[in-house]
Design a protein around this nucleic acid. Sequence first.
DNA 1: TAAATTTGTCTATTGATATAGACAACTATA
DNA 2: TATAGTTGTCTATATCAATAGACAAATTTA
Lengths: 248, 248
Amino acid sequence: MTGLAASIERRNGVSLWRQIADRILQAIANGDFAENAALPPEMALAERYGVNRHTVRSAIAALVQEGVLKAEQGRGTFVLSRKRLSYPIGARTRFSTGLQGQTSERHIALLSSSKEPAGRRIAEALGIARGAAVIRLETRGEADGHPVSRATTWFDAKRFAGIEAAMAETGSITASLKRFGINDYLRHSTVLSARHADADDLAALDLQPGAIVLVTIAVNVTLDGQPIQFAESRFPAERVELRLSAGD
Amino acid sequence: MTGLAASIERRNGVSLWRQIADRILQAIANGDFAENAALPPEMALAERYGVNRHTVRSAIAALVQEGVLKAEQGRGTFVLSRKRLSYPIGARTRFSTGLQGQTSERHIALLSSSKEPAGRRIAEALGIARGAAVIRLETRGEADGHPVSRATTWFDAKRFAGIEAAMAETGSITASLKRFGINDYLRHSTVLSARHADADDLAALDLQPGAIVLVTIAVNVTLDGQPIQFAESRFPAERVELRLSAGD
DNA sequence: TAAATTTGTCTATTGATATAGACAACTATA
DNA sequence: TATAGTTGTCTATATCAATAGACAAATTTA
């Protein structure tokens, strides 16, 4: 399928070993290797990608460091298989319901919260005056102890005063909103993009530098269309894919 | 907002100038700079990112090459503003209707076509036997003369014999499907991921090496749920964002 | 046991990346 | 017309990235 033949680019600002590490990760996520399967020998990979064996070794070293591969002298290099999580997004997406069946344990950790004046984008999305106070929550989604998302969420401070405490206590946006009389809500719009992870993402998501994150910018609304929440979420592209299902 | 403070990472396989170029691109796409606005002076950027001025110059040089910035000796460096296209995806997404109002001219160019046996993934998606013949189309979406997407599409060769000719003639998937008696179809499922662009993407999308592409893998079905089309599309993350609207 | 295969380590060399400093060329402004 | 601010060019140096070759160490297979 895709990504087998295509060659490697030089002099682009992305080192060859990083590009090759990306390829291998992609192949694993694609299911090209079975659980605990052996990677082709270093010489074979070097030939396939048209680079020196040492360059392949650098790529493998990075993935070993990352816990994706395990190298054994004399035997080979093996895939410790981390399949990609498939994360559904749609009108009724909730974090905890989204990953059902794929992981056994999941929750949202509140990293920090603060109060700040609303910028242009946030004010427009929440339908409040620019400069009005908003509460900002920094959270991390975890599944089976592994970080799978990193989000920044804004609420109208007037309407949702104290939501950071509710969030810290319940570990759930849905449960926290219930305390403010909101029993159901919908995702109104989602904008999707991708970029290199920044320093904050790297630390929070336990990523290796150079990793790519999928970014969603979403507005949640009540059933009658009133905006309640504005959020930017980052997902590590190497561990998560986003899934849109018809009818969601 | 996001992306202003976060610092630059070293020894990660992605060169500093590439990381800084990414940041600047992101800031422009974010709307942090007005049309034709001047970028901060090189010295200021160097200080902000904690690097040497020459490193900033490398980043700027790459973006000038790319046509995003224009540097004028003695005056400053200016944003040639290319706003990001917002590309809607949903149950009723069509290429030509999707970008209405954002661009004046758009069409799909057929790059090549071939016949091949269906692999596991494609056979499952199309509901045909593994190894059955499928037609594969390589296409490029263009808006105002700029490439905005690169797709690989598979059809059941038995049912859609000759669709490559229809596609070449009409330049439209929708119009081509009409010739086979399909007047309407829906997007059944979409899976979203992101990765570094490979050599083929770089050439077809006119990207600088190191660029990131958003990848969608979609299945289109007839109104009664019969799968007709399997497609993998790549969008340059620096020029395109994907938008999910409620009710689509 | 011997041979083949595969990963691990070492040395050496080349080119790209990044830093540093100095100064030229050009523009806008006081 | 000075002066300050900005981009452009040059030299020099240190480190990282990539290539190249040789051989050691461990495992599997004949």
